[in-house]
């Protein structure tokens, strides 16, 4: 089974994965689950959490991992197409995890690969396993996703996490609060998709405009590489900062999430606040990806 886009995952499938992930959370011995299976992690762009957590997940399930984290030294550098790379590597392994800058690259890889493909980020398009671990973290805190007010803040246009998280959450009865400058706002197509699914969407400029209503504040990084000039980037750098002042305004049970890495969006003084869930969120990447890997490799 491929995991390519959040849009293509049904609510039943998502619930099934989250339920199975719970089983993997205690560090018991699961080393017979995927014993003898080989995973390729093809990271055409750098990654820390995603690559390591996939590797950890596969090894905890008893499988082996091979792959690369840079295209330096690979045949891609010599001009090999993605299609050829996938056709070749898929003959060596039982599953492929791919991160690639081109949008739709995971879908194309899945079309030419006889083994399952998992999208670990294709440009700004999607990152379905991040969405799954985000949903897992939220569900873990609130037991149910229904009725929640979720604020997503920062770069909603180019970031690869805010859009798929919104699409994933749209399977439940949630209200979304988008906090961003107009230049980095959520695209109209996604907002229309959400409203067609009867999801209430509110757009505001400041964290303060939404904070009191939120159950979840999901921070994202303003990405330097998305701006044409350093000057443009500096206009937005540091616009959204979660600090003690913001946390004092936040509801007692609100959680703060971030896909990491952070730059300056959350000051370190917030780390010790019990509402700070971003490191726990990163930790959840392992059981969720164990669940995804098992389903990808063992189910059609």
């Amino acid at each position: 089974m491929d995991f390519i886009s959040t849009r293509s995952m049904s609510k039943d499938l998502i619930e099934d994965i989250l339920k199975e992930a719970k089983k993997y959370e205690p560090k018991k011995d699961f080393s017979s689950v995927l014993k003898g299976k080989v995973l390729a992690t093809l990271f055409f762009e750098p990654s820390t959490r995603t690559q390591f957590s996939f590797q950890s997940a596969m090894e905890r399930l008893g499988g082996n991992v091979l792959g690369f984290s840079t295209i330096e030294g690979t045949s891609v550098k010599k001009g090999e197409t993605l299609t050829d790379t996938i056709k070749m590597i898929s003959s060596y392994v039982d599953c492929i995890v791919i991160r690639h800058p081109q949008e739709g690259s995971a879908k194309l890889a899945a079309e030419v690969s006889p083994v399952p493909v998992i999208n670990a980020g294709d440009g700004s398009h999607d990152h379905p396993t991040q969405t799954l671990l985000d949903l897992y973290t939220i569900k873990d805190s609130f037991k149910s996703l229904d009725g929640l007010n979720v604020g997503i803040c920062g770069d909603l246009r180019y970031g690869r996490t805010g859009r798929p998280l919104s699409v994933g959450l749209s399977n439940w009865d949630v209200k979304l609060h988008y906090i961003s400058p107009p230049q980095l706002s959520m695209d109209k197509g996604t907002i229309k998709f959400l409203r067609d699914k009867k999801i209430e969407v509110r757009e505001v400029l400041k964290i303060e405009d939404a904070i009191k209503e939120l159950d979840v504040l999901y921070m994202t990084r303003i990405q330097r590489e998305r701006f044409p000039t350093e000057e443009e980037y500096l206009k937005f750098k540091g616009v959204y900062v979660v600090d003690k002042r913001i946390m004092d305004m936040a509801p007692e049970k609100m959680i703060v999430m971030h896909p990491l890495p952070r730059v300056d969006e959350i000051v370190t003084e917030v780390d010790s606040d019990p509402r700070a869930q971003y490191f726990n969120q990163a930790k959840n990447g392992v059981p969720v990806r164990m669940s995804v890997l098992n389903k990808a490799i063992t189910e059609k």
Binding site: S5, R7, T81, L82, T83, H100, P101, Q102, E103, G104, S105, K107, L108, E111, D122, G123, S124, H125, D126, G189
Partner: peptide
């Protein structure tokens, strides 16, 4: 930045609505 501009593959679009016409790229979903 859709992969169809870089790889030897045919473009594909799902017809989501006919009037007015709404097409979604099968690869990047744009």
């Amino acid at each position: 930045v859709c992969v169809t501009h870089f790889e030897p593959c045919e473009s594909r679009f799902a017809v989501e609505a006919r009037n007015p016409l709404v097409l979604r790229c099968t690869y990047c979903e744009r």
